[in-house]
Simulated assay, not measured.
Amino acid sequence: MRNLITDVKGLRVGQAHDAAAATGVTVALFDRPTIASVAVLGGAPGTRDTALLAPEMTVEHVDAIVLSGGSAWGLAAADGVMSWLAGQGRGFPVGQLRIPIVPQAILFDLANGGAKPWARGGEEAPYRRLGTIAASQAADDFALGTAGAGYGATTVNLKGGIGSASARAATGQIVGALVAVNAVGTATIGDGPHFWAAPFEREGEFGGLGWPGAITPGDTALRFKGGTGQNTTIALVATDAVLTKAQARRMAMAAHDGLARALRPAHAPLDGDVVFAAATGHSGAPSDAYALTELCATAADVLSRAIARGVHAATALPFAGARPAWRDRHGE
């Protein structure tokens, strides 16, 4: 077990970034067409092709899921992924053609200090290119923290980033999470080093500090970063189980509980919080509703852990006024 979403058999992750622009793309690439769905609970989402993931919609499978920076400009990343997949002969068959199915969610990282001239017009944004690179580099191992879609991500007080975690559910099946943490609020308790996700930590994966001795009213006071449209946590949870689209939708909804446990606040009008769920089908189907509940609860737990790991692993951007990394403030 790598403690990454790639512990789920049937998917790999690729990432690419533009350091000068302080933005990037993360791609979860499936080895074969894969059942997926989505739950959108943030008030300001930016998405592409999420409507087809509803259980009643015709298309059953996806080829990849994309997480990207760049706000609406970042939606072009899926174009690059589609182009790469088409070159591999992948996609939904329509006559003699194949159309790669690549749903996507984006986060707002335009105000993090990076140079983004396309936001003022006259230049092409880099996301199509980054999407192609990320897809072509998909592998079992990948970087956490300041990487991919999390390259330019922040929270209200610390640098955000890409996080991932995995676990074996009580059913014996693997569940993993991949997340780009760009939250309106905090992943840590007050200004201390402790994470809201502490109860779910395994083997000191984000410092092993547990809870603080006390949580004060100041620690729970709400703080907000930026304004409308500047905050989003976007994620994918995946399992090697066999699920229907309706069951995948249920797992995506349940995984949002993990997001809410790891970030304060979550699902706000200022957020675009989106969680995709995918089932690669390399192990058996859940035997009953209780077994499905085990998978859903595990998805929530691994998403909480992945969020904390993304912040814990991040490094600060080299710009004036950039938010510090967790390690800058709290050491190793």
Score class of each variant (00 low, 15 high):
A28R: 03
A138C: 12
M251I: 11
L107Q: 04
G210V: 13
A297H: 12
A285H: 03
D49F: 07
A167T: 12
P55Y: 14
A187C: 10
A306N: 02
A72H: 03
L107H: 03
V242P: 01
P117R: 12
G161N: 10
T155I: 01
A78C: 00
L4R: 09
P93G: 10
R120Y: 11
S304P: 01
A300H: 13
T155S: 03
L130D: 04
E201G: 07
H312D: 15
T293S: 15
I106P: 06
G95V: 02
A138I: 05
A297K: 09
D109R: 09
G70W: 04
R309W: 01
C296R: 10
V25K: 11
A54S: 13
G150E: 00
A54D: 15
I106G: 08
A22Q: 06
L178N: 02
D273I: 03
G163P: 07
A39K: 15
I162A: 14
S68L: 00
K159V: 00
A316W: 11
G121P: 04
G161Y: 04
L75R: 09
G210Y: 13
W73K: 11
H267Y: 04
R305V: 06
L144V: 08
K9Y: 07
K245H: 09
A105S: 14
G176H: 05
P212S: 07
V94R: 02
A44I: 02
G190N: 05
A255T: 07
P318W: 00
A76L: 11
R261G: 06
A21T: 00
A197W: 08
R98H: 12
A187S: 12
G226F: 11
A135P: 06
T23H: 03
G95Y: 01
P100C: 10
A322N: 01
S287V: 12
V184W: 07
L97N: 11
A28F: 09
A105T: 05
G207V: 08
C296L: 04
A111T: 15
A266I: 06
V40P: 02
G321K: 15
V8Y: 00
T26S: 12
V81Q: 00
M251R: 08
D273T: 01
L236M: 00
L209W: 10
F319L: 10
V237A: 04
V25G: 03
L130P: 00
V102N: 03
G87N: 11
T6Y: 00
G161S: 06
G148D: 01
G258I: 06
P103I: 02
D288F: 02
A21F: 10
R327P: 01
W73H: 12
